[in-house]
C-alpha cells in the first residue's frame, strides 16, 4: 500500500492552473524530496494529500484510503512551513493538546520533547521560544502517534547544523521503521545524502522524479574532473585532446589545475587515459549535485524563480 499516490492530478484556483497533471507516489520506508521554487505547487500538492483541498482533476489516495478521511489523518504527521503555536501555552501543554486531538498517548509528550531536544524548555511558554525551538516543537507535533506518512514542509528552517543533522538522522530511523517521509524544500544543500528520491516541480508540473543517479542520467549533465599535473598543465591538455572522445570537452585552468567537464558516458575512458599517461599527480571527480540537477530542470528561468528561495 502506497503512502500516497497522485494520479494525473490537476488543481485550478480561480483561473490559474496551480497543479497540472502530476503523477507522484511515495512508498513506505522511503524519503522523497519534493523540490521547487515558491509557487511551483509543492504546498498545493501537500494540501491535496492532507485532504485540505480536493483536486480539480485526477485522483489522490493516501494510505489506501481517501485524503482527508479522519481515520487516515490519524496516521499522518505534518509540519507546516513556518509552524505557529498558541504563544501563551507551554511546549508541553501544546503537545498534550495535539496528542489528545490525535488520540495519541500522553506518555509520548515528554518522550518526543526529549527527542527533539526541548527537555529544558518544555515548561516555558512558546512565546519565549526561538524560531528553531518552535520548529522542533512542530517536529515533535508531527511525530505524535507514530505516523505512517510524515510530511515536513521546510523542516530545517531555523535549525542549526547540528539540529539539522539530528533531524536527518531521526528521519532515517523512521524510514527504516517503514514510515514514508516527504521533505518539502527549496533549500537543497545538505539534503542530498538523506533522500531516496527527488521530485522537481516547476510551475505546477512535475519536471523530473527519481533517485539522484537517474535524475543525473536524465539531465545528462557533465561530470567535472579537477586534475593536478605531474609536470605541466599543457602536457595534461595534450593528453585530454588526444583522448578518444575529446570532441566538445570544456577545459579551463584554475589554481594550477586543469578542470575538464566530461559527459557521464565518457568519464571512465578519459580517466583511464589520464592515469595511463603518467601526467596526473592528483585527480578529483565532481558529479553534478542535487542543486545542479535542480537548476538544470527548472531551466533558464531558474535564477528569477530562485530569488525567493533562500
Amino acid at each position: 500500500m502506497s503512502c500516497f499516490r497522485l494520479e494525473n492530478v490537476s488543481y485550478r484556483y480561480d483561473r490559474a492552473l496551480v497543479l497540472n497533471g502530476v503523477d507522484l507516489r511515495l512508498e513506505p520506508g522511503e524519503i522523497l524530496g519534493l523540490f521547487g521554487h515558491n509557487g511551483a505547487g509543492k504546498t498545493t500538492s501537500i494540501k491535496l494529500i492532507l485532504g485540505l483541498m480536493t483536486p480539480s482533476q485526477g485522483k489522490v489516495s493516501v494510505l489506501g484510503g481517501e485524503a482527508g478521511d479522519p481515520k487516515i489523518s490519524q496516521y499522518i504527521g505534518y509540519l507546516p512551513e513556518n509552524v505557529m503555536f498558541y504563544p501563551q501555552l507551554t511546549g508541553r501543554e501544546i503537545l498534550a493538546h495535539f496528542a489528545r486531538l490525535k488520540g495519541a498517548s500522553l506518555r509520548q509528550v515528554p518522550e518526543l520533547l526529549g527527542q527533539v531536544g526541548l527537555d529544558d524548555a518544555m515548561d516555558a511558554r512558546v512565546k519565549t521560544y526561538s524560531k528553531g525551538m518552535r520548529q522542533r516543537l512542530g517536529l515533535a507535533q508531527a511525530l505524535l502517534g507514530k505516523p505512517r506518512l510524515l510530511m515536513l514542509d521546510e523542516p530545517t528552517v531555523g535549525l542549526d547544523p547540528i539540529a539539522t543533522a539530528d533531524l536527518y538522522r531521526l528521519l532515517r530511523t523512521l524510514r527504516d521503521d517503514g514510515t514514508g517521509v516527504v521533505l518539502c524544500s527549496h533549500v537543497l544543500p545538505g539534503v542530498e545524502p538523506y533522500i531516496d528520491r527527488a521530485a522537481i516541480l516547476t510551475d505546477g508540473s512535475l519536471k523530473a522524479a527519481g533517485d539522484l543517479a537517474s535524475l543525473r542520467r536524465q539531465a545528462n549533465m557533465p561530470t567535472t574532473l579537477s586534475i593536478e599535473p605531474e609536470n605541466t598543465v599543457a602536457a595534461l591538455e595534450a593528453v585530454v585532446n588526444n583522448a578518444p572522445a575529446s570532441a566538445g570537452l570544456m577545459m579551463h585552468q584554475a589554481n594550477g589545475r586543469l578542470r575538464v567537464d566530461v559527459r557521464p558516458a565518457e568519464k571512465m575512458e578519459l580517466v583511464k587515459a589520464l592515469v595511463a599517461s603518467g601526467e596526473v599527480r592528483d585527480l578529483g571527480i565532481y558529479e553534478p549535485t542535487l542543486e545542479d540537477v535542480y537548476v538544470h530542470f527548472i531551466g533558464s528561468g531558474g535564477l528569477a524563480h530562485r530569488g525567493g528561495a533562500q
Binding site: 485540505l52 489523518s73 505534518y78 507546516p80 503555536f85 495535539f98 486531538l101 488520540g103
Partner: peptide, 14 residues
Amino acid sequence: EGGTLLLLMTYPLS
C-alpha cells in the same frame, strides 16, 4: 491568523 487553523485541520478533527 495565528497559523494554527491549517495544522488543526490536518488532525482527525472536522
